[in-house]
């Protein structure tokens, strides 16, 4: 059974009760954090969670698209490696994990955390994890933005000394 068929089988489980914005935020941090961070949060909140694989983990390709002129019609820029996994908890929740690169274990951990998030019994811990991770990633981005800002050209006008 594909994940899609499974989700259609159980419409109440398709994530509808949960805020999709929060779920997307969780997926965004799970894709970007180092795998060790996923291992440690999982060990912290649900070390013994029972998991059934539904799909993968597997590595494949996603064709990355750009836009002509930056904002026009899409074109195929080139592919990127992507790893993904879908898991089901013994309580029925389906979780998806997907990220750039070939780290299938990372994708599987992301899928488990997505499933746990939907089960709802770790919502507080996961919400805190999302907030903390976003802050950490934002800090790295801010650092880069500040290093870039230091290379901003401040133009000045040459003043001739013969006034």
């Amino acid at each position: 059974m594909t994940p899609k068929e499974y989700a259609m089988d159980r419409p109440a489980q398709a994530g509808s009760v949960l805020d999709p914005v929060l779920r997307r935020r969780l997926m965004a941090v799970l894709a970007r954090l180092p795998r060790q961070r996923l291992e440690s949060i999982l060990a912290q909140i649900a070390p013994d969670v029972e998991i059934h694989p539904v799909r993968g983990p597997e590595t494949g390709l996603v064709m990355v698209r750009g836009r002509i002129g930056g904002g026009g019609s899409p074109f195929n820029l080139g592919e990127a490696t992507v790893s993904r996994a879908t898991v089901r908890l013994s309580t029925g929740e389906i979780g998806h994990g997907q990220l750039l690169g070939t780290d299938r274990q990372h994708a599987r951990l992301a899928a488990i955390l997505d499933a746990l998030h939907q089960r709802g019994d770790h919502q507080g811990a996961i919400a805190a994890f999302i907030t903390d991770s976003e802050a950490e990633l934002a800090q790295a981005e801010r650092r880069q933005a500040e290093e870039t800002a230091a290379t901003r050209v401040d133009f000045f006008t040459m003043v001739r000394g013969d006034d």
């Binding site: 597997e58 590595t59 494949g60 390709l61 996603v62 064709m63 990355v64 698209r65 750009g66 836009r67 930056g70 904002g71 899409p74 195929n76 820029l77 592919e79 990127a80 490696t81 992507v82 993904r84 981005e141 880069q144 933005a145 870039t148 290379t151």
Partner: peptide, 23 residues
């Protein structure tokens, strides 16, 4: 190597206007 992998799909077009700029 890329020919050995299955294609999962295509991304949404990336938005270069929203780039985290390094240069």
């Amino acid at each position: 190597y890329r020919t050995t992998l299955p294609r999962f799909g295509s991304s949404l077009p990336v938005e270069t206007g929203e780039m985290a700029i390094e240069r």
